[in-house]
């Protein structure tokens, strides 16, 4: 099951390579493009990136294993990342995490049965002024309260149930 980017995305990668003196620099941008396409970067994603950039695959593995932003396995439709660092901790991120687990049954570091949610904790998201913060896919949700989290989760469930955005 080899993974391949679409033709346009491959062109995009080729274009990004020209920004740098060496194609190795384009490893992170290329992995971002892979992640945009399917939400995660796995071993086959690595293989494909290495082929596109014409660099040894170990360079790509090396980067993938270092940078925590790229998931190495499928993360569902909504990848929920809650900041648990100092500023969010002071403003109640722990209650928020407990709420996600206890009320919504979204367990840490596991895909939910319906394949919708994957939740993990992250370090500082750089939005400490609006703590607690959570990131769902690319979007930041700030100044969260437990009610707002309820609404968000319900909203996600609804929009995927109606077959929208699929």
């Amino acid at each position: 099951m080899a993974f391949e980017l679409t033709k346009e995305k491959q062109e995009l990668v080729k274009e990004v390579i020209t920004h740098y003196p060496d194609p190795r620099s384009a490893i992170l941008p290329a992995m971002h493009i892979v992640m945009d396409e399917r939400g995660w970067v796995g071993d086959d994603g690595c293989q494909h990136v290495a082929e596109l950039l014409e660099v040894p695959i170990i360079y790509v593995y090396e980067a993938l294993s270092f940078y925590t932003y790229f998931p190495k396995h499928p993360v569902g439709k909504y990848h929920i990342q809650v900041c648990h660092n100092i500023a969010c901790n002071l403003r109640g991120s722990e209650e928020l995490i407990e709420h996600l687990v206890n009320k919504h049954g979204i367990i840490e570091n596991a895909l939910t049965d319906d394949g919708l949610f994957y939740f993990n904790r992250v370090e500082c998201l750089g939005a400490c002024g609006n703590a607690p913060v959570m990131q769902v896919n690319d979007e930041y949700y700030e100044d969260l309260t437990l009610e707002e989290v309820d609404k968000l989760i319900e909203g996600f469930k609804k929009s995927s149930g109606n077959g929208k955005n699929n």
């Binding site: 992170l28 941008p29 940078y67 932003y69 370090e123 500082c124």
Partner: peptide, 10 residues
């Protein structure tokens, strides 16, 4: 001027 994105490493 180009942009480059990191990937979650402090």
């Amino acid at each position: 001027v180009w942009t480059h994105r990191g990937a979650g490493a402090y």
